[in-house]
Lab assay of single mutants.
Amino acid sequence: EPLWIRPDAPSRCTWQLGRPASESPHHHTAPAKSPKILPDILKKIGDTPMVRINKIGKKFGLKCELLAKCEFFNAGGSVKDRISLRMIEDAERDGTLKPGDTIIEPTSGNTGIGLALAAAVRGYRCIIVMPEKMSSEKVDVLRALGAEIVRTPTNARFDSPESHVGVAWRLKNEIPNSHILDQYRNASNPLAHYDTTADEILQQCDGKLDMLVASVGTGGTITGIARKLKEKCPGCRIIGVDPEGSILAEPEELNQTEQTTYEVEGIGYDFIPTVLDRTVVDKWFKSNDEEAFTFARMLIAQEGLLCGGSAGSTVAVAVKAAQELQEGQRCVVILPDSVRNYMTKFLSDRWMLQKGFLKEEDLTEKKPWWWHLRVQELGLSAPLTVLPTITCGHTIEILREKGFDQAPVVDEAGVILGMVTLGNMLSSLLAGKVQPSDQVGKVIYKQFKQIRLTDTLGRLSHILEMDHFALVVHEQIQYHSTGKSSQRQMVFGVVTAIDLLNFVAAQERDQK
């Protein structure tokens, strides 16, 4: 057995438009009618409502009807409940999964919650491996369901041993009777949507819809739904939504950006999952974080739909894509998950301010006199920076000697690579993860907040409520011999709460 199987392995699926269902090699399930009293909570997966979006479509000038398939009504709160249950049931049916076995899954959280929910009911041990950027709410729900959680670096490539995929496979090879159901490759993922989600949409719309818009992560949702719609409703256009920084969209030119990270969760990847059939997507749109969270908040405030950030991405694209539809036509959007997962993220004004998705003037509360002053007023001194090749031991000596707790790590040209902190280095040394002679590049981390000289002290204040420091950066445009230009970030300084307090105190003292 291989040590790991690539999540982007070539698909062996034989589905073709027009091929009889009787030739399918898979076990198919028909939607079942729910009894009045459910035998367990797993029976509350599927049969989610279709809700008309009344205000947002009109606000953006849509002539067509805009409908939302509300997947956050599933038992675990997301569309991923469907595939989690289906993968477990299919693994039980073919004898792969037996009582007492362990389920391991690399996930952005929602599939993990679905699997942990099913594992709690069915009696399996469950280990979820997820990147650090995923919300604390997801972690809390997983723990409450009895799952064990392993976190991995957000910026690790999918084929790196440190990625959530790599760590999951390492655990599988170490733990007896453990299984990775593997949402990236498992046919049960798109089949769950082909058999149930798509049929529900067709039934709820009486077979009449002209466009379907869905955000894409593993691709199982859009693949399964689109294949069924292509068979039953061939005139329906399928629109895929991919965040900026991901590479799922086609044509490839759409993916060209210097951005590699994004805040919206559960969609987009740096590889093409095996289950994603991009041939059934008629057109791709890219979405960005700001519009995703703005539209998610709009869905909550104006439509009462308590959905997550990827739902915002989907609707932001839908109001663009559906401009081509006329009166009497219908566009369906998939709202994948609930706001429950993001209470401390985009639902929080403070978080939105820190990330730059909300401006101070958007909030009406009274601010102190210094709130709208610029960061450049602080008069920061030149920063202490270190090269990635310097040793951890030497870096600790320098920081202690100069009285700093942290320093930016830059390359020879001064471009920011990340940050090192005294606390992080000492804990890594004590844990045996690094040696004093190791290069400081081994303990770089990139989960820090950046701020510009033109940003306000109010925004800085919000950042420092949650973080010990902020890195002050400025952009530099560099022209190359080819005539092309590129933008790079340079370090201007490091600012802490002490710097802000000293500035405010000094100004008030001078005024007296």
Rank of each mutant, 00 (worst) to 15 (best):
T279D: 07
I300C: 04
A413S: 13
L430D: 06
V332T: 05
T274F: 02
W351Q: 02
K283T: 02
L380A: 11
G441P: 02
D438L: 12
W370S: 04
V241T: 09
G379H: 07
I463Q: 14
D438Y: 13
I300W: 02
D411F: 09
A292D: 02
N255I: 02
V333F: 10
T260P: 02
D510C: 13
L353T: 12
S481G: 15
M466V: 13
A249P: 07
L417V: 12
I498F: 08
F346C: 05
A413R: 12
I334V: 11
L457C: 15
D405C: 08
V494H: 02
E327A: 05
S381I: 15
T260G: 15
L373P: 12
E360T: 07
Q507T: 02
Q487T: 14
I272Y: 09
A382L: 14
E365A: 11
E244P: 10
P336F: 02
G493Q: 02
E290S: 14
Y262A: 05
T279H: 14
A407Q: 12
N341G: 06
E324S: 09
Q478V: 06
V415S: 11
L363S: 15
S486Y: 11
W284D: 02
R488Y: 14
V473I: 02
S428M: 06
I498M: 14
V409I: 12
G393V: 15
T482E: 02
K433I: 06
Q259F: 15
L430N: 14
L363H: 15
L429S: 10
G418R: 06
F346A: 02
P336R: 13
V434M: 14
S481R: 14
C392E: 02
V332I: 10
F469I: 08
H394S: 02
Q354M: 08
Q487R: 11
K442C: 13
Q326M: 13
D467C: 07
Q439Y: 12
Q476P: 13
A296G: 08
V275G: 02
N288D: 15
A301H: 08
A413M: 13
G240V: 15
K320L: 10
Q507R: 13
L380M: 14
K449F: 09
E253V: 11
D510G: 02
V491W: 11
A506V: 04
R374D: 05
E258N: 14
F293L: 04
H394F: 11
N255T: 02
G418C: 09
Q406G: 14
P243T: 14
V440C: 13
M419L: 12
A506D: 06
V339S: 05
L426Y: 15
H394V: 15
P388I: 02
F503P: 12
S486C: 12
S461V: 13
P336T: 06
A407R: 02
Q256I: 10
P388V: 11
V491M: 14
K512L: 11
I267G: 02
M490L: 11
V333L: 14
L429R: 15
T421V: 11
T279Q: 14
G423C: 05
H474N: 04
Q256N: 13
V495C: 12
G268F: 02
I267C: 05
F293D: 04
M419F: 13
A382D: 02
T344C: 06
A431V: 12
I498H: 07
L363Q: 08
V410Y: 14
D282V: 10
T261N: 02
G483P: 15
L306G: 04
G432L: 10
W351I: 02
D467Y: 02
G393I: 11
L430I: 14
F503M: 14
Q447K: 10
V504S: 08
L453T: 12
P251S: 10
F285R: 07
A407N: 02
L384D: 15
R452D: 09
G309D: 04
G418Q: 09
E401D: 13
D282W: 08
D270R: 02
K366L: 12
E265N: 04
E401T: 02
D282C: 11
E327K: 11
L373H: 15
L430S: 12
I477L: 14
K449H: 02
G304P: 02
C307G: 07
A505P: 02
L347V: 05
L276G: 06
V434C: 12
Q326W: 09
V264K: 02
Y479D: 06
F503Q: 04
K402G: 15
S481L: 15
R330D: 14
C307F: 05
V241A: 04
N341Y: 04
L248F: 02
E324L: 04
E303M: 02
Q354Y: 02
R374N: 13
E303S: 08
P368Q: 05
S427V: 07
L460F: 14
D349S: 08
L299W: 02
N255V: 02
G414F: 12
T421N: 02
H372L: 13
K283Y: 09
M425G: 09
K433W: 02
A505E: 15
T395L: 09
W351T: 02
S427L: 11
Q256V: 14
N288R: 13
S246P: 13
L399S: 02
C307T: 15
S310V: 02
L353R: 08
M419I: 11
K366C: 13
G268L: 04
I477N: 12
V415A: 13
I477P: 02
R509L: 14
S348M: 09
V504F: 12
V281A: 05
E360L: 11
V275W: 04
P273S: 04
I238N: 04
V409C: 15
F285T: 02
Q376T: 10
E253D: 12
G245L: 05
G403I: 08
T391A: 06
I451F: 12
K449M: 10
L305P: 02
V409Y: 09
E365I: 14
H372V: 13
V420H: 06
S348T: 12
E258Y: 07
A322T: 05
G414E: 13
Y269N: 07
T391Y: 02
V339Y: 07
K359I: 11
D438T: 02
N288L: 10
D455Q: 02
C331V: 02
G245I: 02
Q478I: 10
I267W: 06
K366T: 14
F448I: 12
Q259N: 07
W351A: 02
F492L: 11
T364S: 12
L353N: 04
T314W: 05
V375Y: 02
M466Q: 10
I416T: 10
L500S: 08
E290A: 05
D438M: 13
D405M: 02
V264Q: 07
A470C: 02
M343E: 05
T456M: 13
Q439V: 11
E250L: 11
G483Y: 11
A249M: 11
Q354V: 06
D289W: 06
I267E: 08
R297D: 05
M466R: 08
Q487L: 11
M490A: 07
K442G: 06
L453R: 13
A316F: 11
D438N: 12
I451L: 15
A318Y: 07
I396F: 09
L399C: 08
E397M: 10
E291R: 13
D362Y: 14
L399V: 08
A318I: 02
P243L: 02
P273Q: 12
Q478C: 12
T344G: 11
D277W: 07
R452N: 13
G309W: 02
K283I: 07
G483L: 09
V472G: 15
L500G: 08
A322C: 09
D289R: 06
F295D: 02
S486T: 14
M419A: 12
H474F: 10
K366F: 07
P251C: 05
V420T: 14
V280C: 14
G418W: 07
P243R: 02
I300T: 02
P436M: 09
D467V: 09
P336K: 02
A470M: 15
Q256W: 11
T364V: 02
S310G: 02
D411V: 09
L380N: 02
E290W: 15
E397C: 07
D510W: 13
S437C: 11
R278L: 05
D337V: 02
G268D: 02
Q511G: 14
T260R: 06
E324K: 14
E412I: 13
E397S: 05
R278A: 02
D289A: 04
